[in-house]
Nucleic acid binder design. Structure first.
Length: 210
DNA sequence: CTGACGATTCACT
DNA sequence: GTGAATCGTCAGC
């Protein structure tokens, strides 16, 4: 653990610009204290989902279901959902109540509790796939849909600033991954990466913009 | 109640 | 590059 770690608060998550928040999350630490283990990783890849006008978002058109209800809550909640019958994907809810913005965390660089992450994922060793890709990192940190709706202001799951800063010229934007169904909105440059970081997940075809 | 499919990953060709 | 895995969620009947 770094010496000085500050948990991100409501003023960070409640901002209206989901793209700015997605960019600001790069370099922050995602921390979980679950099943008696402290695990954390530095965020190196995010994707923004901009609410009811974004065709790629689960909340497009104002759709409200049992699953997506948490997206309509205040900023600073975890939104975790299950896809493909296999994977749980971890997102952060932003903006205010009834404005369903969210940011998918797509890749981390492991920091603390790496041995336990390896155990959780059932992998044989610490390789890149441990926390590269949204399904992989959620499993490595022990995040499942039962955590959906959990506040990020508590002690179990939170995001923190340890003073690490990403040089702005190392931040790139690209189109989002796996959202072909979204028509023109699939082209939006709503994915943010730390350029050159080896934990950034696939999507190599997606051109990185400076 | 039913059928179709997904903000993915991995093994295999 | 292609396809299987695998089941909760959701729209439609």
């Amino acid at each position: 653990m770094a010496a000085e770690i500050k948990k991100l608060g409501a003023s960070f998550y409640s901002r209206p610009n989901v793209l700015a928040i997605a960019k600001d999350l790069l370099g922050k630490l995602l921390v979980t204290r679950l099943d008696h283990h402290y695990t954390s990783g530095r965020i190196v890849e995010t994707e923004a989902y901009a609410g009811i006008t974004d065709r790629a978002s689960h909340a497009y058109g104002g759709r409200r279901t049992d699953r997506t209800e948490v997206m309509y809550g205040r900023g600073g909640l975890a939104y975790v959902y299950f896809v493909y019958g296999i994977h749980h994907l971890f997102n952060v809810v932003t903006n205010g109540k009834d404005i369903p913005h969210a940011i998918l965390i797509r890749a981390l660089e492991p920091v603390d509790g790496i041995a336990y992450m390896v155990k959780r994922t059932g992998k044989k060793k610490d390789d890149i796939a441990l926390t590269s890709g949204p399904g992989n990192l959620s499993k490595a940190l022990g995040l499942y849909k039962e955590h959906s709706g959990l506040s990020l202001f508590g002690k179990e799951v939170y995001i923190a600033d340890d003073g690490y800063r990403v040089r702005s010229n190392l931040i790139g934007s690209t189109a989002r991954i796996g959202v072909d169904y979204a028509g023109d909105d699939a082209k939006l440059l709503y994915r943010f990466v730390i350029k050159g970081n080896k934990y950034v997940s696939g999507g190599k075809k997606n051109q990185v913009h400076p």
